[in-house]
Design a protein around this nucleic acid. Structure first.
Lengths: 218, 218
DNA sequence: ATATTTTGTTAGGTTAATCTAACTTTATAT
DNA sequence: ATATAAAGTTAGATTAACCTAACAAAATAT
């Protein structure tokens, strides 16, 4: 069984090697920085994980996860996202509070627990951040949810959910004339700070990137 | 912040020093045996916990928890029992499955999580084993509960809790056909060793005093 | 009252995960 | 094309939690 530390290295490698489609390998320093350890420490662990056949690694070479390593990493991500969903849906944590606690909960070892938790949550597809939750086989059937801030200028989209549930944010959302299923047209974007000009039911508004980050759209 | 290991030592000491009213101190070997470590290991840890003012300890002397140590121990017990309740009530774990997973969950550090979990469970008073759950202030209303071994021959009683929650004991309990709220009739007692003949749902069994000592009834 | 057993302690060693400092290899820039 | 910078590695220490083996103190049994 893997230690929490080993699990964290696998998870970090998973994220580093799947940030973009074009990137599937990572470096020692990069990994070390992600985990807030020194490169020497990461280097030791890489040797250990190579020994356990969880990473592909050669001296001075790039690092990637083996199939086995990837499988384990995805399982940790799955646990993390299910716990985040639990905290958000059942315990009324706000979306920005869930991550920290899930970082701990993801290391609980009990397949039965995760199976039952997933059932209890009614097999959710997305976590509170809009990221897709892998199923028990490690398959990701859906894409992560898009936020308004990712929409191209000129496109029209539909609001399907909000990330933040705070009163202040929701009041702001209403003030802009938005509700679930509202059609939103992106009129322009400021490259400098991501500020958007949008149109909802014929009403134009200017909103910050931070605001747009909190709206899930299709 | 305490490590999981330190927390486990405090918890073990809490149980060892509060098993009976007459016993409020424990020994090194006893503690080591409880935690499945060697006495030398426990001895090292005792020095460390003394340094942190969590235990009262002098060379060759008996061990007890300080107020601070006791407070922390109770908090771990509280978390353990709340998690057991969650697993049992919400995730449909059976009462003999909850302990093992709660042993992991009790070490999650997040006051907010426990606060919200307790609220979600509607401030339960007892865990699935019938043990009282300390409140956020560490207060525990201990009620004098009879054990099956104290019941008079011919009387019928109801199982409300178990004292021991090791897997082997719990499996034995189930084998005899017992569950929470089971009606138990005491048919006979051997004066020599306290062995009891009991009847549960029409099924007769012979159980040891040690076994009966671990069942709380009303 | 003393020998024996039980209990507790110490010294010294191991492993996992971390560090610093020095070194080597690879990449970059002129 | 080679000097410099960046990235990666190694060696040697440290800390927490564990171990074994040897020893010391306390309890017990005759």
């Amino acid at each position: 069984m893997l230690s929490q530390t080993e699990e964290n290295y696998l998870k970090a490698l998973f994220y580093l090697t799947s940030e973009n489609a074009d990137k599937s390998e990572a470096g020692t320093n990069e990994l070390a920085a992600t985990l807030n350890v020194k490169p020497a420490t990461a280097n030791d662990m890489l040797k250990k994980l190579k020994e356990k056949k969880l990473v592909n690694y050669e001296r001075y070479g790039k690092i990637s996860l083996t199939n086995s390593g990837k499988k384990q990493a995805i399982d940790i991500v799955r646990k993390h996202r299910l716990w985040e969903t639990f905290l958000y849906e059942k315990l009324e944590f706000t979306w920005d509070e869930v991550h920290e606690v899930a970082e701990q909960l993801e290391h609980i070892h009990s397949p039965k627990l995760i199976e039952k938790l997933e059932k209890f949550l009614n097999y959710p597809e997305f976590d509170p951040h809009g990221d897709a939750i892998p199923n028990a086989k490690g398959e990701l059937k859906v894409q992560a949810r898009k936020t308004l801030s990712e929409m191209a200028v000129g496109k029209t989209c539909k609001l399907i959910a909000v990330k933040d549930n705070s009163a202040s944010f929701l009041q702001y959302v209403m003030k802009v004339g938005l509700g679930l299923s509202s059609k939103i047209k992106v009129i322009s974007r400021q490259d400098f700070d991501g500020t958007l000009e949008i149109e909802v039911n014929g009403k134009k508004s200017v909103v910050s990137q931070k605001f747009a980050d909190n709206l899930f759209v299709v």
